[in-house]
């Protein structure tokens, strides 16, 4: 990976440039991502919106240095993904909470601090403060099996944020929640993101979730996965259910839904 993108001009932003991801398959190669590029200002909230199978989760994992790209460069405020990851600048919320079932809620939140050698007392205090932030006061000693789906996701968010990461990755974090819960969690995420000032990158296929949370939406199509449209959302913050139901957002929702449907159909045509 070259450092060419980490010129002074790109510092203070996340810059994704020319990302290509190919997987070997029987009798050739499958192109999961083709020439993907975009940028996010520090402290911003960006969303990769796309149908399932468009490679948006793969893209997220490339930016977070979980998997390498075949080609292309990612620059996070002047650092490579590997540098940023090992410096502990990432928080990651997975599709499922992925809590460790043998640890209590608060011990799960403590895990990233423990890994960094933070002392017992400070670790506990910071984890408790984070549980408070996500609205889980009094649930710190619960085992994950005894938490509801929404609570488990709050714990996962608290764990991702407890190290005060510079970048928060959210990989379809509210899959499987009913629509009402999802809206509640969206409002929570917006509040927490504003409170922490972290830069957030969300992956979702839910259009209203994207509108509710994002400064910028990058719409992805598939075969190969690529960015087919970009939208900047100007709605004032904090956004509420009402602002998402305002005429201009409903119009945007209709437009984005059409873009998504089109990319589903383009596959059905093949």
């Amino acid at each position: 990976m070259t450092m060419s993108a980490s010129s002074p001009a790109s510092t203070g932003r996340i810059v994704v440039d020319g990302i290509e991801k190919r997987f070997p398959v029987k009798g050739g190669e499958f192109t999961a991502l083709s020439d993907v590029g975009f940028s996010i200002p520090e402290g911003g909230f960006a969303t990769l919106l796309g149908p399932s199978g468009c490679g948006k989760s793969t893209l997220l994992r490339i930016i977070a240095d979980v998997i390498p790209p075949t080609e292309g460069v990612v620059d996070l405020f002047g650092r490579t993904p590997a540098q940023a990851r090992t410096a502990g600048e990432f928080g990651f919320v997975f599709q499922d909470p992925v809590l460790l079932p043998w640890r209590s809620a608060v011990a799960n939140v403590e895990l990233p601090l423990q890994a960094r050698g933070v002392g017992r007392k400070e670790r506990r205090d910071r984890a408790m403060a984070m549980l408070h932030l996500v609205g889980l006061d009094g649930f710190e000693d619960r085992q994950p099996a005894k938490l509801s789906g929404g609570m488990a996701r709050r714990v996962a968010i608290a764990r991702a944020l407890v190290t005060e990461p510079r970048v928060l990755f959210l990989d379809e974090p509210f899959n499987g929640l009913d629509e009402l819960r999802r809206r509640q969690m969206n409002a929570e995420v917006q509040r927490i993101w504003e409170a922490t000032g972290t830069t957030a990158l969300l992956v979702t296929h839910n259009v209203s979730e994207a509108i509710m949370l994002s400064d910028d939406i990058f719409v992805m199509g598939r075969n190969p996965g690529r960015i087919i449209a970009t939208r900047h959302i100007d709605l004032p913050r904090p956004r509420t259910l009402e602002s998402v139901l305002a005429p201009e957002s409903v119009e945007l929702e209709r437009e984005l839904t059409e873009l998504l449907s089109a990319s589903y159909e383009s596959v059905a045509d093949e």
């Binding site: 990851r85 090992t86 502990g88 990651f92 997975f94 992925v98 990233p112």
Partner: peptide, 18 residues
């Protein structure tokens, strides 16, 4: 093993023994 456990370890930048 659940691959997400390894992904979690990677994101948290944990070494093998940790």
């Amino acid at each position: 093993l659940d691959p997400r456990i390894d992904e979690l370890g990677r994101v948290l930048a944990l070494g093998y023994w940790r």
